[in-house]
Write a protein that binds this DNA or RNA. Structure first.
Length: 580
DNA sequence: CTAGGGTTAG
Protein backbone atom coordinates (compact mmCIF):
# COMPACT_ATOMS: atom_id res chain seq x y z
CA UNK A 1 0.00 0.00 0.00
CA UNK A 2 1.40 3.31 -0.99
CA UNK A 3 1.18 6.30 1.29
CA UNK A 4 -1.13 7.79 -1.32
CA UNK A 5 -3.81 5.29 -0.38
CA UNK A 6 -3.40 5.44 3.34
CA UNK A 7 -6.05 8.07 3.98
CA UNK A 8 -8.60 6.27 1.88
CA UNK A 9 -8.30 3.07 3.83
CA UNK A 10 -8.14 4.86 7.12
CA UNK A 11 -11.21 6.99 6.50
CA UNK A 12 -13.33 4.20 5.05
CA UNK A 13 -13.13 2.47 8.39
CA UNK A 14 -14.08 5.35 10.60
CA UNK A 15 -17.66 6.26 9.77
CA UNK A 16 -18.39 6.83 13.42
CA UNK A 17 -15.89 9.63 13.71
CA UNK A 18 -17.24 13.14 13.88
CA UNK A 19 -16.36 15.60 11.13
CA UNK A 20 -13.75 17.28 13.23
CA UNK A 21 -11.83 14.07 13.85
CA UNK A 22 -12.21 13.11 10.22
CA UNK A 23 -10.87 16.38 9.06
CA UNK A 24 -8.19 16.42 11.72
CA UNK A 25 -7.01 13.05 10.45
CA UNK A 26 -7.28 14.09 6.84
CA UNK A 27 -5.56 17.32 7.65
CA UNK A 28 -2.73 15.64 9.49
CA UNK A 29 -2.15 13.20 6.67
CA UNK A 30 -2.13 15.98 4.14
CA UNK A 31 0.23 18.22 6.09
CA UNK A 32 2.63 15.35 6.60
CA UNK A 33 2.36 14.00 3.08
CA UNK A 34 2.50 17.03 0.87
CA UNK A 35 2.07 15.04 -2.32
CA UNK A 36 -1.53 14.12 -1.50
CA UNK A 37 -4.15 16.61 -2.64
CA UNK A 38 -6.89 17.61 -0.29
CA UNK A 39 -9.92 16.70 -2.42
CA UNK A 40 -8.45 13.33 -2.96
CA UNK A 41 -8.24 12.77 0.76
CA UNK A 42 -11.69 14.05 1.57
CA UNK A 43 -13.68 12.34 -1.13
CA UNK A 44 -13.51 8.89 0.46
CA UNK A 45 -15.19 10.16 3.61
CA UNK A 46 -18.45 10.17 1.77
CA UNK A 47 -17.60 7.11 -0.28
CA UNK A 48 -19.29 8.65 -3.23
CA UNK A 49 -18.50 9.67 -6.73
CA UNK A 50 -19.87 13.16 -6.32
CA UNK A 51 -17.92 16.02 -7.79
CA UNK A 52 -15.23 17.28 -5.50
CA UNK A 53 -16.78 20.73 -5.31
CA UNK A 54 -19.96 19.42 -3.71
CA UNK A 55 -18.04 17.14 -1.42
CA UNK A 56 -15.82 19.87 -0.08
CA UNK A 57 -18.76 22.22 0.38
CA UNK A 58 -20.63 19.58 2.35
CA UNK A 59 -17.57 18.85 4.38
CA UNK A 60 -17.09 22.52 5.24
CA UNK A 61 -20.74 22.94 6.07
CA UNK A 62 -20.79 19.90 8.30
CA UNK A 63 -17.75 21.13 10.17
CA UNK A 64 -19.38 24.53 10.71
CA UNK A 65 -22.75 23.10 11.70
CA UNK A 66 -21.13 20.90 14.32
CA UNK A 67 -19.34 23.85 15.81
CA UNK A 68 -15.91 22.92 14.51
CA UNK A 69 -15.04 26.33 13.17
CA UNK A 70 -11.38 25.73 13.83
CA UNK A 71 -11.30 22.65 11.63
CA UNK A 72 -13.34 24.48 8.99
CA UNK A 73 -10.86 27.35 8.92
CA UNK A 74 -8.06 24.81 8.66
CA UNK A 75 -9.79 23.28 5.68
CA UNK A 76 -10.35 26.64 4.00
CA UNK A 77 -6.65 27.43 4.38
CA UNK A 78 -5.89 24.16 2.60
CA UNK A 79 -8.34 24.92 -0.15
CA UNK A 80 -6.65 28.29 -0.63
CA UNK A 81 -3.23 26.63 -0.78
CA UNK A 82 -4.33 24.07 -3.30
CA UNK A 83 -3.40 24.73 -6.90
CA UNK A 84 -5.33 21.93 -8.58
CA UNK A 85 -8.53 22.79 -6.72
CA UNK A 86 -9.61 26.37 -6.33
CA UNK A 87 -11.73 27.54 -3.42
CA UNK A 88 -15.04 28.79 -4.67
CA UNK A 89 -17.12 31.77 -3.45
CA UNK A 90 -19.45 29.40 -1.60
CA UNK A 91 -16.59 27.95 0.43
CA UNK A 92 -15.87 31.45 1.62
CA UNK A 93 -19.54 32.21 2.22
CA UNK A 94 -19.95 29.22 4.50
CA UNK A 95 -16.97 30.29 6.58
CA UNK A 96 -17.95 33.96 6.67
CA UNK A 97 -21.47 32.99 7.69
CA UNK A 98 -20.22 30.85 10.54
CA UNK A 99 -17.84 33.51 11.81
CA UNK A 100 -20.61 36.12 11.70
CA UNK A 101 -22.97 33.85 13.59
CA UNK A 102 -20.30 33.44 16.26
CA UNK A 103 -20.08 37.24 16.33
CA UNK A 104 -16.47 36.99 15.13
CA UNK A 105 -17.19 39.61 12.52
CA UNK A 106 -13.63 40.94 12.50
CA UNK A 107 -12.37 37.57 11.35
CA UNK A 108 -15.20 37.33 8.84
CA UNK A 109 -14.16 40.63 7.32
CA UNK A 110 -10.58 39.36 7.18
CA UNK A 111 -11.68 36.27 5.27
CA UNK A 112 -13.64 38.58 2.96
CA UNK A 113 -10.39 40.45 2.31
CA UNK A 114 -8.51 37.24 1.67
CA UNK A 115 -11.03 35.99 -0.84
CA UNK A 116 -10.77 39.18 -2.85
CA UNK A 117 -6.99 39.01 -2.69
CA UNK A 118 -7.28 35.52 -4.15
CA UNK A 119 -9.41 36.90 -6.94
CA UNK A 120 -12.61 35.18 -5.82
CA UNK A 121 -15.53 37.48 -6.51
CA UNK A 122 -17.98 37.94 -3.60
CA UNK A 123 -21.66 37.46 -4.39
CA UNK A 124 -24.91 38.68 -2.84
CA UNK A 125 -24.74 35.95 -0.17
CA UNK A 126 -21.32 37.14 0.97
CA UNK A 127 -22.57 40.67 1.44
CA UNK A 128 -25.85 39.70 3.07
CA UNK A 129 -24.09 37.59 5.67
CA UNK A 130 -21.51 40.29 6.38
CA UNK A 131 -24.09 43.09 6.60
CA UNK A 132 -26.10 40.98 9.00
CA UNK A 133 -22.99 40.27 11.07
CA UNK A 134 -22.02 43.93 11.28
CA UNK A 135 -25.53 45.09 12.11
CA UNK A 136 -25.77 42.35 14.74
CA UNK A 137 -22.93 44.09 16.58
CA UNK A 138 -24.91 47.33 16.24
CA UNK A 139 -22.41 48.55 13.68
CA UNK A 140 -25.18 49.96 11.51
CA UNK A 141 -22.98 52.51 9.80
CA UNK A 142 -20.56 49.80 8.74
CA UNK A 143 -23.47 47.70 7.51
CA UNK A 144 -24.74 50.59 5.47
CA UNK A 145 -21.19 51.15 4.18
CA UNK A 146 -20.94 47.57 3.01
CA UNK A 147 -24.24 47.95 1.19
CA UNK A 148 -22.65 50.86 -0.68
CA UNK A 149 -19.60 48.77 -1.41
CA UNK A 150 -21.59 45.90 -2.90
CA UNK A 151 -23.53 48.24 -5.15
CA UNK A 152 -20.30 49.88 -6.21
CA UNK A 153 -18.80 46.51 -7.09
CA UNK A 154 -21.83 45.73 -9.22
CA UNK A 155 -23.32 43.07 -6.97
CA UNK A 156 -27.09 43.56 -7.02
CA UNK A 157 -28.76 43.49 -3.60
CA UNK A 158 -31.84 41.28 -3.30
CA UNK A 159 -34.89 41.34 -1.08
CA UNK A 160 -32.95 39.55 1.67
CA UNK A 161 -30.36 42.34 1.73
CA UNK A 162 -33.08 44.88 2.33
CA UNK A 163 -34.84 42.71 4.88
CA UNK A 164 -31.62 42.46 6.88
CA UNK A 165 -31.20 46.23 6.82
CA UNK A 166 -34.84 46.97 7.64
CA UNK A 167 -34.69 44.50 10.52
CA UNK A 168 -31.45 45.96 11.86
CA UNK A 169 -32.74 49.51 11.91
CA UNK A 170 -35.99 48.37 13.53
CA UNK A 171 -34.05 46.59 16.27
CA UNK A 172 -32.19 49.82 16.92
CA UNK A 173 -35.51 51.62 17.30
CA UNK A 174 -34.96 53.60 14.10
CA UNK A 175 -38.22 52.74 12.35
CA UNK A 176 -38.02 55.84 10.18
CA UNK A 177 -34.76 54.75 8.59
CA UNK A 178 -36.04 51.19 8.43
CA UNK A 179 -38.98 52.46 6.42
CA UNK A 180 -36.58 54.30 4.09
CA UNK A 181 -34.73 51.05 3.38
CA UNK A 182 -38.05 49.30 2.86
CA UNK A 183 -39.14 51.88 0.30
CA UNK A 184 -35.71 51.89 -1.34
CA UNK A 185 -35.84 48.27 -2.45
CA UNK A 186 -38.13 48.99 -5.41
CA UNK A 187 -35.49 51.31 -6.86
CA UNK A 188 -33.19 48.30 -6.98
CA UNK A 189 -35.74 46.15 -8.72
CA UNK A 190 -36.67 44.25 -5.58
CA UNK A 191 -40.19 43.62 -4.34
CA UNK A 192 -41.08 43.31 -0.66
CA UNK A 193 -42.25 39.82 0.27
CA UNK A 194 -44.16 38.62 3.31
CA UNK A 195 -40.97 38.58 5.39
CA UNK A 196 -40.27 42.23 4.55
CA UNK A 197 -43.72 43.24 5.70
CA UNK A 198 -43.49 41.14 8.85
CA UNK A 199 -40.22 42.80 9.82
CA UNK A 200 -41.57 46.30 9.36
CA UNK A 201 -44.92 45.51 10.99
CA UNK A 202 -42.97 44.26 13.98
CA UNK A 203 -40.78 47.36 13.91
CA UNK A 204 -43.80 49.65 14.13
CA UNK A 205 -45.37 47.49 16.84
CA UNK A 206 -42.24 47.57 19.00
CA UNK A 207 -42.37 51.38 19.16
CA UNK A 208 -46.12 51.18 19.76
CA UNK A 209 -47.03 52.72 16.40
CA UNK A 210 -49.63 50.02 15.88
CA UNK A 211 -51.78 52.04 13.50
CA UNK A 212 -48.91 52.32 11.06
CA UNK A 213 -48.41 48.57 11.43
CA UNK A 214 -52.06 48.07 10.58
CA UNK A 215 -51.81 50.30 7.53
CA UNK A 216 -48.90 48.16 6.31
CA UNK A 217 -51.20 45.20 6.75
CA UNK A 218 -53.65 46.91 4.41
CA UNK A 219 -50.81 47.70 2.00
CA UNK A 220 -50.00 44.01 1.89
CA UNK A 221 -53.39 43.08 0.53
CA UNK A 222 -53.19 45.90 -2.02
CA UNK A 223 -49.87 44.53 -3.21
CA UNK A 224 -51.23 40.99 -3.16
CA UNK A 225 -48.77 39.80 -0.54
CA UNK A 226 -50.52 37.13 1.50
CA UNK A 227 -50.07 37.44 5.29
CA UNK A 228 -48.92 34.32 7.11
CA UNK A 229 -49.07 33.17 10.72
CA UNK A 230 -46.04 35.33 11.58
CA UNK A 231 -47.84 38.45 10.34
CA UNK A 232 -50.80 37.67 12.56
CA UNK A 233 -48.70 36.84 15.61
CA UNK A 234 -46.76 40.08 15.19
CA UNK A 235 -49.91 42.15 14.93
CA UNK A 236 -51.56 40.39 17.85
CA UNK A 237 -48.50 41.02 19.97
CA UNK A 238 -48.45 44.68 18.96
CA UNK A 239 -52.12 45.16 19.74
CA UNK A 240 -51.66 43.51 23.13
CA UNK A 241 -48.71 45.76 23.95
CA UNK A 242 -50.83 48.89 23.53
CA UNK A 243 -53.71 47.38 25.49
CA UNK A 244 -56.00 46.71 22.53
CA UNK A 245 -56.85 43.21 23.71
CA UNK A 246 -60.22 43.08 21.99
CA UNK A 247 -58.63 43.87 18.62
CA UNK A 248 -55.98 41.25 19.30
CA UNK A 249 -58.60 38.61 20.01
CA UNK A 250 -60.49 39.59 16.85
CA UNK A 251 -57.32 39.13 14.77
CA UNK A 252 -56.70 35.80 16.43
CA UNK A 253 -60.17 34.73 15.36
CA UNK A 254 -59.42 35.75 11.76
CA UNK A 255 -56.48 33.39 11.45
CA UNK A 256 -58.41 30.26 10.51
CA UNK A 257 -60.59 32.18 8.07
CA UNK A 258 -57.43 32.93 6.06
CA UNK A 259 -56.69 29.27 5.72
CA UNK A 260 -53.97 29.53 8.36
CA UNK A 261 -53.59 27.56 11.56
CA UNK A 262 -52.48 29.22 14.81
CA UNK A 263 -49.22 27.66 15.95
CA UNK A 264 -47.56 27.41 19.38
CA UNK A 265 -46.08 30.88 19.12
CA UNK A 266 -49.41 32.47 18.19
CA UNK A 267 -50.97 30.84 21.25
CA UNK A 268 -47.97 31.66 23.43
CA UNK A 269 -48.22 35.35 22.58
CA UNK A 270 -51.83 35.61 23.66
CA UNK A 271 -51.51 33.31 26.65
CA UNK A 272 -48.55 35.26 27.96
CA UNK A 273 -50.40 38.51 27.56
CA UNK A 274 -53.49 37.19 29.35
CA UNK A 275 -51.36 36.02 32.28
CA UNK A 276 -49.53 39.34 32.49
CA UNK A 277 -52.83 41.17 32.73
CA UNK A 278 -54.23 39.03 35.46
CA UNK A 279 -56.66 37.23 33.15
CA UNK A 280 -55.78 33.89 34.64
CA UNK A 281 -58.92 31.94 33.71
CA UNK A 282 -58.85 33.14 30.10
CA UNK A 283 -55.21 32.14 29.80
CA UNK A 284 -55.85 28.64 31.13
CA UNK A 285 -58.88 28.31 28.84
CA UNK A 286 -56.72 29.21 25.84
CA UNK A 287 -54.18 26.55 26.79
CA UNK A 288 -57.03 24.05 26.70
CA UNK A 289 -58.19 25.29 23.29
CA UNK A 290 -54.64 24.92 22.05
CA UNK A 291 -54.35 21.34 23.22
CA UNK A 292 -57.73 20.50 21.69
CA UNK A 293 -56.46 21.91 18.43
CA UNK A 294 -53.63 19.37 18.61
CA UNK A 295 -51.00 22.06 18.85
CA UNK A 296 -48.13 20.52 20.78
CA UNK A 297 -46.77 22.74 23.55
CA UNK A 298 -43.03 23.33 23.43
CA UNK A 299 -40.61 24.34 26.17
CA UNK A 300 -41.16 28.04 25.46
CA UNK A 301 -44.88 27.70 26.07
CA UNK A 302 -44.24 25.78 29.28
CA UNK A 303 -41.92 28.57 30.38
CA UNK A 304 -44.71 31.06 29.80
CA UNK A 305 -47.12 28.81 31.72
CA UNK A 306 -44.79 28.42 34.68
CA UNK A 307 -44.17 32.16 34.72
CA UNK A 308 -47.91 32.84 34.48
CA UNK A 309 -48.71 30.49 37.35
CA UNK A 310 -46.07 32.16 39.50
CA UNK A 311 -47.40 35.62 38.64
CA UNK A 312 -50.87 34.46 39.72
CA UNK A 313 -49.37 33.40 43.04
CA UNK A 314 -49.69 29.71 42.21
CA UNK A 315 -46.02 28.79 42.48
CA UNK A 316 -46.90 25.26 43.49
CA UNK A 317 -48.73 24.76 40.19
CA UNK A 318 -45.71 26.25 38.43
CA UNK A 319 -43.43 23.80 40.20
CA UNK A 320 -45.81 20.98 39.28
CA UNK A 321 -45.64 21.84 35.57
CA UNK A 322 -41.87 22.11 35.93
CA UNK A 323 -41.56 18.64 37.45
CA UNK A 324 -43.74 17.08 34.76
CA UNK A 325 -41.62 18.40 31.89
CA UNK A 326 -39.53 15.23 31.49
CA UNK A 327 -42.77 13.25 31.02
CA UNK A 328 -43.37 15.33 27.86
CA UNK A 329 -39.85 14.60 26.70
CA UNK A 330 -38.65 18.08 27.59
CA UNK A 331 -35.83 18.88 29.91
CA UNK A 332 -35.65 22.21 31.72
CA UNK A 333 -32.55 24.27 31.00
CA UNK A 334 -31.23 27.31 32.80
CA UNK A 335 -33.93 29.44 31.25
CA UNK A 336 -36.75 27.43 32.80
CA UNK A 337 -34.92 27.31 36.14
CA UNK A 338 -34.51 31.09 36.06
CA UNK A 339 -38.23 31.55 35.53
CA UNK A 340 -39.19 29.28 38.42
CA UNK A 341 -36.52 30.83 40.66
CA UNK A 342 -37.92 34.24 39.79
CA UNK A 343 -41.40 32.96 40.62
CA UNK A 344 -40.31 31.81 44.06
CA UNK A 345 -38.50 35.10 44.66
CA UNK A 346 -41.51 37.18 43.67
CA UNK A 347 -43.59 35.13 46.10
CA UNK A 348 -40.96 35.72 48.78
CA UNK A 349 -40.13 32.00 49.02
CA UNK A 350 -36.39 32.47 49.04
CA UNK A 351 -35.53 29.11 50.57
CA UNK A 352 -37.19 27.29 47.67
CA UNK A 353 -35.50 29.59 45.18
CA UNK A 354 -32.08 28.94 46.70
CA UNK A 355 -32.62 25.19 46.72
CA UNK A 356 -33.35 25.37 42.99
CA UNK A 357 -29.96 26.98 42.54
CA UNK A 358 -28.43 24.00 44.34
CA UNK A 359 -30.45 21.63 42.17
CA UNK A 360 -29.11 23.30 39.03
CA UNK A 361 -25.56 22.72 40.18
CA UNK A 362 -26.26 19.08 41.01
CA UNK A 363 -27.82 18.54 37.59
CA UNK A 364 -24.90 20.28 35.91
CA UNK A 365 -27.06 23.05 34.53
CA UNK A 366 -24.91 26.14 34.84
CA UNK A 367 -26.60 29.10 36.47
CA UNK A 368 -26.28 32.30 34.49
CA UNK A 369 -25.75 35.82 35.71
CA UNK A 370 -29.52 36.25 35.37
CA UNK A 371 -30.00 33.45 37.93
CA UNK A 372 -27.83 35.36 40.36
CA UNK A 373 -29.43 38.72 39.58
CA UNK A 374 -32.84 37.17 40.22
CA UNK A 375 -31.80 35.65 43.55
CA UNK A 376 -29.98 38.79 44.68
CA UNK A 377 -33.07 40.81 43.83
CA UNK A 378 -35.22 38.32 45.74
CA UNK A 379 -33.01 38.49 48.81
CA UNK A 380 -32.93 42.29 48.74
CA UNK A 381 -36.69 42.32 48.37
CA UNK A 382 -37.16 40.48 51.68
CA UNK A 383 -34.55 42.63 53.36
CA UNK A 384 -31.75 40.04 53.41
CA UNK A 385 -29.14 42.41 52.06
CA UNK A 386 -26.28 40.59 53.79
CA UNK A 387 -27.15 37.28 52.12
CA UNK A 388 -27.49 39.11 48.81
CA UNK A 389 -23.94 40.41 49.22
CA UNK A 390 -22.73 36.90 50.03
CA UNK A 391 -24.32 35.63 46.83
CA UNK A 392 -22.67 38.50 44.98
CA UNK A 393 -19.30 37.12 46.05
CA UNK A 394 -20.21 33.69 44.67
CA UNK A 395 -20.61 35.14 41.19
CA UNK A 396 -16.87 35.36 40.64
CA UNK A 397 -16.36 31.83 41.93
CA UNK A 398 -18.66 30.59 39.17
CA UNK A 399 -16.70 32.45 36.52
CA UNK A 400 -19.67 34.68 35.86
CA UNK A 401 -19.41 38.41 35.38
CA UNK A 402 -21.74 40.83 37.23
CA UNK A 403 -23.73 43.16 35.01
CA UNK A 404 -25.14 46.63 35.51
CA UNK A 405 -28.33 44.91 36.72
CA UNK A 406 -26.40 43.10 39.46
CA UNK A 407 -24.84 46.30 40.71
CA UNK A 408 -28.04 48.32 40.37
CA UNK A 409 -29.99 45.84 42.48
CA UNK A 410 -27.43 45.95 45.28
CA UNK A 411 -26.89 49.70 45.13
CA UNK A 412 -30.64 50.25 45.30
CA UNK A 413 -30.90 48.00 48.34
CA UNK A 414 -27.92 49.68 50.05
CA UNK A 415 -29.60 53.05 49.57
CA UNK A 416 -32.86 51.68 50.99
CA UNK A 417 -30.91 50.56 54.07
CA UNK A 418 -29.41 54.06 54.23
CA UNK A 419 -25.92 52.65 53.69
CA UNK A 420 -25.01 55.55 51.43
CA UNK A 421 -21.24 55.17 51.56
CA UNK A 422 -21.36 51.47 50.72
CA UNK A 423 -23.71 52.22 47.84
CA UNK A 424 -21.35 54.78 46.36
CA UNK A 425 -18.40 52.45 46.98
CA UNK A 426 -20.12 49.74 44.97
CA UNK A 427 -20.79 52.25 42.21
CA UNK A 428 -17.07 53.00 42.04
CA UNK A 429 -16.27 49.27 41.96
CA UNK A 430 -18.68 48.92 39.07
CA UNK A 431 -17.15 51.74 37.09
CA UNK A 432 -13.74 50.30 37.94
CA UNK A 433 -14.58 47.14 35.99
CA UNK A 434 -15.64 49.22 33.03
CA UNK A 435 -19.40 48.98 33.38
CA UNK A 436 -21.31 52.11 32.43
CA UNK A 437 -24.44 53.07 34.41
CA UNK A 438 -27.65 52.97 32.39
CA UNK A 439 -30.75 55.09 32.92
CA UNK A 440 -32.16 52.61 35.46
CA UNK A 441 -29.07 52.95 37.64
CA UNK A 442 -29.05 56.74 37.32
CA UNK A 443 -32.66 56.71 38.48
CA UNK A 444 -31.60 54.71 41.55
CA UNK A 445 -28.72 57.11 42.17
CA UNK A 446 -30.84 60.24 41.83
CA UNK A 447 -33.38 58.72 44.20
CA UNK A 448 -30.64 57.74 46.66
CA UNK A 449 -29.08 61.18 46.54
CA UNK A 450 -32.40 62.89 47.19
CA UNK A 451 -33.14 60.57 50.09
CA UNK A 452 -29.74 61.12 51.70
CA UNK A 453 -30.32 64.84 51.76
CA UNK A 454 -28.32 65.65 48.64
CA UNK A 455 -31.06 66.86 46.29
CA UNK A 456 -28.64 69.20 44.62
CA UNK A 457 -26.31 66.33 43.70
CA UNK A 458 -29.35 64.45 42.42
CA UNK A 459 -30.40 67.43 40.37
CA UNK A 460 -26.89 67.76 39.00
CA UNK A 461 -26.89 64.12 37.91
CA UNK A 462 -30.25 64.72 36.26
CA UNK A 463 -28.94 67.73 34.37
CA UNK A 464 -25.89 65.76 33.26
CA UNK A 465 -27.83 62.87 31.73
CA UNK A 466 -28.06 64.28 28.23
CA UNK A 467 -24.31 64.82 28.06
CA UNK A 468 -24.01 61.09 28.79
CA UNK A 469 -26.24 60.41 25.84
CA UNK A 470 -29.14 59.28 28.00
CA UNK A 471 -32.73 60.46 27.93
CA UNK A 472 -34.68 60.64 31.19
CA UNK A 473 -37.63 58.24 31.24
CA UNK A 474 -40.84 58.54 33.23
CA UNK A 475 -39.15 57.08 36.32
CA UNK A 476 -36.31 59.56 36.11
CA UNK A 477 -38.76 62.44 36.12
CA UNK A 478 -40.71 60.84 38.96
CA UNK A 479 -37.75 60.29 41.32
CA UNK A 480 -36.41 63.77 40.54
CA UNK A 481 -39.81 65.36 41.06
CA UNK A 482 -40.22 63.46 44.33
CA UNK A 483 -36.82 64.68 45.53
CA UNK A 484 -37.58 68.29 44.65
CA UNK A 485 -41.00 68.24 46.35
CA UNK A 486 -39.75 66.55 49.50
CA UNK A 487 -37.08 69.22 49.81
CA UNK A 488 -39.45 72.10 49.28
CA UNK A 489 -38.14 73.08 45.86
CA UNK A 490 -41.60 73.68 44.43
CA UNK A 491 -40.47 76.04 41.69
CA UNK A 492 -37.95 73.53 40.36
CA UNK A 493 -40.56 70.79 40.59
CA UNK A 494 -43.03 72.85 38.59
CA UNK A 495 -40.39 73.59 36.00
CA UNK A 496 -39.53 69.89 35.76
CA UNK A 497 -43.16 69.07 35.09
CA UNK A 498 -43.21 71.51 32.18
CA UNK A 499 -39.95 70.02 30.92
CA UNK A 500 -41.20 66.46 30.92
CA UNK A 501 -44.36 67.42 29.03
CA UNK A 502 -42.31 69.26 26.41
CA UNK A 503 -40.08 66.17 26.13
CA UNK A 504 -43.23 64.23 25.29
CA UNK A 505 -43.15 62.23 28.51
CA UNK A 506 -46.69 62.12 29.84
CA UNK A 507 -47.19 62.04 33.63
CA UNK A 508 -48.34 58.64 34.90
CA UNK A 509 -50.14 57.63 38.10
CA UNK A 510 -46.90 57.91 40.11
CA UNK A 511 -46.22 61.42 38.84
CA UNK A 512 -49.64 62.64 39.91
CA UNK A 513 -49.39 61.03 43.32
CA UNK A 514 -45.97 62.59 43.88
CA UNK A 515 -47.24 66.02 42.84
CA UNK A 516 -50.39 65.89 44.96
CA UNK A 517 -48.54 64.69 48.04
CA UNK A 518 -45.80 67.23 47.36
CA UNK A 519 -48.19 70.16 47.32
CA UNK A 520 -50.09 68.90 50.37
CA UNK A 521 -46.85 68.61 52.31
CA UNK A 522 -46.21 72.33 51.82
CA UNK A 523 -49.84 73.33 52.38
CA UNK A 524 -50.43 74.24 48.75
CA UNK A 525 -53.98 72.97 48.94
CA UNK A 526 -55.28 74.69 45.83
CA UNK A 527 -52.49 73.23 43.66
CA UNK A 528 -52.98 69.79 45.17
CA UNK A 529 -56.69 69.78 44.39
CA UNK A 530 -56.03 71.14 40.92
CA UNK A 531 -53.74 68.19 40.18
CA UNK A 532 -56.15 65.76 41.77
CA UNK A 533 -58.71 66.90 39.24
CA UNK A 534 -56.20 66.51 36.40
CA UNK A 535 -55.30 63.06 37.64
CA UNK A 536 -58.91 61.93 37.71
CA UNK A 537 -59.48 63.36 34.23
CA UNK A 538 -56.47 61.39 33.00
CA UNK A 539 -58.06 58.21 34.38
CA UNK A 540 -55.52 57.53 37.14
CA UNK A 541 -56.30 56.83 40.77
CA UNK A 542 -54.68 57.88 44.02
CA UNK A 543 -52.42 55.54 45.95
CA UNK A 544 -52.93 54.79 49.65
CA UNK A 545 -50.71 57.63 50.93
CA UNK A 546 -52.35 60.22 48.76
CA UNK A 547 -55.79 58.98 49.83
CA UNK A 548 -54.92 59.25 53.53
CA UNK A 549 -53.56 62.75 52.99
CA UNK A 550 -56.76 63.73 51.22
CA UNK A 551 -58.92 62.37 54.02
CA UNK A 552 -56.88 64.42 56.48
CA UNK A 553 -57.26 67.43 54.26
CA UNK A 554 -61.02 67.14 54.26
CA UNK A 555 -61.06 66.66 58.03
CA UNK A 556 -58.78 69.49 59.08
CA UNK A 557 -58.91 72.29 56.52
CA UNK A 558 -61.41 74.90 55.53
CA UNK A 559 -62.01 74.33 51.84
CA UNK A 560 -63.79 76.29 49.15
CA UNK A 561 -66.78 74.61 47.58
CA UNK A 562 -64.96 73.84 44.31
CA UNK A 563 -62.26 71.88 46.12
CA UNK A 564 -64.85 70.05 48.18
CA UNK A 565 -66.61 69.08 44.98
CA UNK A 566 -63.42 67.58 43.51
CA UNK A 567 -62.72 65.66 46.70
CA UNK A 568 -66.28 64.37 46.76
CA UNK A 569 -65.96 63.05 43.23
CA UNK A 570 -62.65 61.48 44.17
CA UNK A 571 -64.00 59.61 47.19
CA UNK A 572 -67.10 58.55 45.29
CA UNK A 573 -64.90 57.21 42.51
CA UNK A 574 -62.71 55.37 45.02
CA UNK A 575 -65.72 53.77 46.68
CA UNK A 576 -67.19 52.76 43.32
CA UNK A 577 -64.00 51.07 42.15
CA UNK A 578 -63.41 49.40 45.52
CA UNK A 579 -66.93 47.97 45.74
CA UNK A 580 -66.87 46.58 42.19
C1' DC B 1 -23.70 24.20 -0.24
C1' DT B 2 -24.33 29.38 2.20
C1' DA B 3 -28.40 34.78 3.79
C1' DG B 4 -34.06 37.42 6.06
C1' DG B 5 -39.51 37.47 10.04
C1' DG B 6 -43.31 36.40 15.30
C1' DT B 7 -43.65 34.61 21.99
C1' DT B 8 -40.85 33.84 27.51
C1' DA B 9 -37.01 35.28 32.98
C1' DG B 10 -33.41 39.82 36.18
Amino acid sequence: MSIRHAPIILLRNCKSLNPFSLYKITHNIITHNTHIHLPFAIAPIHQSNEPTLVVTLRMLNRLCKSGETKAALLMLKDLEKNDTFKANVTHYNIIINTLCKERRVNEAVEVYGEMMAKGVVPDVWTYNVLIKGLCGLRLLDEGRGLFGEMVEKGVAPNVVTFNILVHSFCKDGKVGEARDWFDLMWEFGCVADVVSYNILVNGYCKVKRVDEALSLFVMMSEKKVVPDIVTYTTLINGLCQVGRVEDALTRFGEIRGCGLVPDVIAYSTLIDFLFKNGKFDEAVALVKTMEEGNVVPNIDLYNILIDGMCKAGKVDVGEDIFRKLPASGLKPGFYTYNILINGYCKNKMITEALSLLKEMCVKRISPTIVTYNTLINGLCHVGRLKDALLLFDDIHKRDLVPTVVTFSTLIDSLFKHEKFDEALGLLRTMEGVGLVPNIVLWNILIDGMCKSGKVDVGHEIFRGLSSRGLRPNIRTYNVMMNGLFKNGKLTDANQLLQEMMIAGCMPDAYTFNIIIQGFLRWNETTMAVQFLRRMLDAGFSADIHTSINLVNLLATKELDSDSKEVLKTFFQHTIDTTVT
